[in-house]
């Protein structure tokens, strides 16, 4: 769900209060916006430290833009996610491919441990498959299928039409399925098919 879907004017009001000198408004905005922005950044980059840097930079740009913010032009959250997505795109293009997360060689075999390892392996596989998608497809899949944003918001964030969002989402999902097809058994999905 969009971060400020229940109060789209709430973020803009907080930003105006921040601009007028209200320090509590800055803290409130941080609490409202940062968790989902961080989630988006981490999914797009696959790296926690880089995701934090991106979110901090995006928030700094928000603070800087606050005095000139015109209510009604754009939702604060949508604007912020657009900045996050763009910063992630820049970093993703500069990024040197890193070794994929792998399972430990000798799991201890306890049920809880196995389940945690299975869950970790699934998320690592999803992350790896996402990383191999083209930028736009990865962005749309993350924003729509993981973050649950509506298509019009995604269109504004990514800078494409709503129809393009639907097309990118379909292609992205097909790409993920193809990338994960050979790992279904490994990831514990063999019996589900």
């Amino acid at each position: 769900m969009a971060l400020d879907a229940d109060s789209p004017a709430g973020d803009a009001d907080l930003l105006a209060r921040y601009s007028a000198g209200d320090r509590a408004a800055a803290l409130a905005l941080t609490e409202r916006l940062v968790p989902q922005a961080l989630s988006v950044a981490q999914r797009l980059l696959g790296d926690r430290v880089e995701a934090e840097d991106v979110v901090q930079e995006a928030m700094l740009r928000l603070w800087t833009a606050a005095p000139g913010w015109r209510a009604g032009e754009a939702r604060v959250s949508t604007w912020l996610y657009r900045v996050v997505v763009n910063l992630c795109t820049d970093r993703h293009r500069r990024k040197v491919p890193q070794p994929r997360d792998t399972l430990p060689d000798h799991p201890d075999g306890t049920p809880g441990q196995e389940a945690r390892l299975q869950a970790r392996a699934r998320q690592a596989a999803l992350q790896a498959a996402l990383a191999d998608l083209p930028d736009r497809q990865r962005q749309v899949v993350v924003l729509r299928d993981i973050e649950g944003l509506p298509n019009p918001d995604i269109a504004e964030i990514v800078g494409v039409s709503v129809q393009a969002v639907e097309s990118l989402a379909a292609r992205g999902r097909r790409g993920l399925k193809a990338a994960l097809a050979g790992r279904r058994g490994e990831l514990g999905f063999e019996d589900d098919g």
């Binding site: 961080l38 995701a51 699934r122 999803l126 299928d145 993981i146 649950g148 279904r184 999905f189 589900d192």
Partner: peptide, 24 residues
């Protein structure tokens, strides 16, 4: 089956969203 797999993976991803730490 692949669609079901994606549904599960997305659901698990939503459930394991990273939270911001105090330092950030």
């Amino acid at each position: 089956g692949a669609e079901a797999m994606l549904t599960v993976l997305f659901s698990e991803a939503r459930a394991t969203r990273p939270g911001p730490n105090a330092a950030l």
